[in-house]
């Protein structure tokens, strides 16, 4: 990096914790378009990091880089001690340890809820079917829809589908959960049931990175809030700092629009 370039804002985790995700100088381009610019971020075990920002600010791309759904061009990403390089083994390793929940659920429509959940444990973790199903039922219970196990995703409501998606990710036993706007595609009346599950998860000590527009969730559960704009981290802080006394003008402008 040339010296003249403005120094990027770093989002380092508190030093008292044990970092599980470390990102250093991350850059990514879509063709000519510079989506992520000098992102440095680390997340401690058990921390809940909420990423907010206007659409197109690169926040989704950021968390998609963490499990290598998007390839980064510069910088380093290390998840639980495994660095994401061109090594297939490392990529698989990182994906096993991170769960991801998508905006549009992405449940597999040709499989039942139970099959959706047990597919990866059986095929990737090589669990026995009985064990996988037992774990699946446990997590279905946890997200509050044990009775839907044998239905197809198409027969469930949006909120139920998203909860199945969370259960699907949890059953793999991930160390980190990535949420990519999990409530944006939901009807307002079912957003609550999904958020409830996420809150419970956070309280159990799961490491989470959540991209969301739900400011209530950020304020309530977030350990740290990161505001991104134009592919950069603009401001980092605790929810209190963020919602009560933001430093940057850009942050203030954004918050004034959505709050």
């Amino acid at each position: 990096m040339p010296d003249t370039a403005p120094a990027a804002v770093r989002a380092d985790a508190p030093t008292d914790g044990q970092p599980i995700i470390e990102i250093e100088g991350l850059n990514k381009w879509f063709g000519e378009f510079h989506v992520l610019r000098d992102i440095s971020l680390s997340v401690n075990k058990g921390e809940v990091v909420v990423v907010i920002g206007p659409s197109g600010s690169g926040k989704s791309t950021l968390i998609r880089c963490i499990n290598h759904l998007e390839e980064h061009q510069q910088g380093r990403i290390v998840v639980d001690g495994t660095e994401l390089t061109d090594d297939v083994r490392n990529i698989d390793q990182v994906r096993r340890e991170t769960g991801m929940v998508f905006q549009s659920f992405n449940l597999f429509p040709h499989l039942t809820v139970l099959e959706n959940i047990t597919l990866a444990p059986i095929r990737v973790r090589k669990w026995k079917k009985s064990k996988a199903e037992e774990r699946a039922r446990f997590f279905l219970d946890k997200v509050g829809i044990p009775e839907q196990a044998l239905k197809f995703p198409g027969q469930l409501s949006g909120g139920q589908q998203q909860r199945v998606a969370i259960a699907r990710a949890l059953t793999m036993g991930p160390k980190v959960m990535l949420f990519d706007e999990p409530t944006s595609a939901l009807d307002p009346e079912v957003i609550g049931e999904v958020l409830e599950v996420m809150v419970a998860l956070a309280q159990e000590g799961m490491t989470m990175i959540v991209v969301t527009h739900e400011m209530g969730f950020a304020r309530e559960v977030g350990d740290r809030v990161i505001f991104m704009d134009q592919g950069q981290i603009v401001e980092v802080g605790t929810p209190e700092h963020f919602f009560l006394a933001p430093r940057e003008e850009r942050t203030k402008a954004f918050l004034s629009k959505i709050l």
Binding site: S104, N106, R123
Partner: peptide, 18 residues
């Protein structure tokens, strides 16, 4: 088949062939 299906499967750790 939407792209999200592949992404979800990859995110679960399933390889390309699976």
């Amino acid at each position: 088949v939407p792209r999200g299906q592949t992404e979800a499967a990859r995110a679960l750790g399933l390889g390309g062939w699976l």
